[in-house]
């Protein structure tokens, strides 16, 4: 029996050295060569070098001049992510949707794309569908005092450039990246 414990300890030591220390070091070293920025969390920086966020992680947006993301069950907490875990039959989903509908002030006959009425699994889904972005174009255009077509065009271009090869072929819009684009592209318009 003593022999079992000695050999167990030797295997533990060996496997920790190889599968934890060496493996982690190797992947750290490789990642710093092949993905030097992505390995730190795909961070986006402002002009002053300040971290604005990660291109992969959703952030809260509530001001009318910005595109709004999908609802988050954890209030976009990127250090404690999670979903709503509500059953699709749970009335709480309907209550939440009612509040969201009130927020979007749809025109008569218009419908809200389902991704804006449902919380994602992580609460940090960085994308919305192109349809969900287009229904926000009016609001963004009005608060930035530009033509709606300008916003629509930017959105179409963004969705096409970031098209994810999903079965929903219309494409997705990365909310944070688009809002950064809005700020950089429309600065000149504001100053006019």
């Amino acid at each position: 029996m003593l022999n079992e414990f000695i050999r167990s300890f030797r295997l533990m030591g060996l496997s920790i050295a190889v599968c934890v220390v060496a493996y982690t070091a190797l992947i750290l070293a490789t990642a710093s060569v092949v993905a030097p920025e992505k390995r730190l969390g795909s961070l986006l920086y402002g002009s002053d070098g300040q971290v604005i966020g990660s291109r992969l992680v959703a952030q809260p947006f509530t001001r009318p001049e910005y595109l709004w993301p999908r609802p988050s069950a954890v209030d976009y907490n990127a250090s404690g992510a999670g979903g709503s875990n509500l059953s699709p039959t749970n009335p709480k989903i309907r209550e939440r949707a009612d509040a969201i509908l009130a927020n979007y002030k749809l025109k008569d006959g218009a419908t809200l794309p389902a991704d804006l009425a449902t919380a994602s699994g992580s609460g940090l889904d960085p994308h919305i569908s192109l349809a969900a972005a287009l229904i926000q174009a009016d609001r963004i255009a009005m608060s930035r005092q530009v033509e709606v077509s300008t916003i629509q065009e930017l959105l179409q271009r963004q969705a096409a450039s970031r098209s994810v090869p999903t079965t929903d072929s219309e494409g997705l819009v990365n909310v944070l990246e688009f809002n950064l684009l809005l700020d950089s592209q429309l600065k000149s318009v504001e100053s006019l």
């Binding site: 999908r70 979903g83 709503s84 875990n85 509500l86 699709p88 039959t89 749970n90 009335p91 709480k92 989903i93 309907r94 949707a97 009612d98 509908l101 749809l106 218009a110 419908t111 809200l112 794309p113 389902a114 991704d115 009425a117 449902t118 919380a119 994602s120 699994g121 992580s122 889904d125 960085p126 994308h127 919305i128 569908s129 349809a131 994810v164 999903t166 997705l172």
Partner: peptide, 19 residues
């Protein structure tokens, strides 16, 4: 839970990521 609301019909999206 969204039946009857002015919401575009889609596959179940609660708890799912779009990408």
């Amino acid at each position: 839970a969204l039946d009857g609301l002015p919401i575009t019909s889609a596959s179940s999206l609660e708890g799912k990521e779009l990408r």
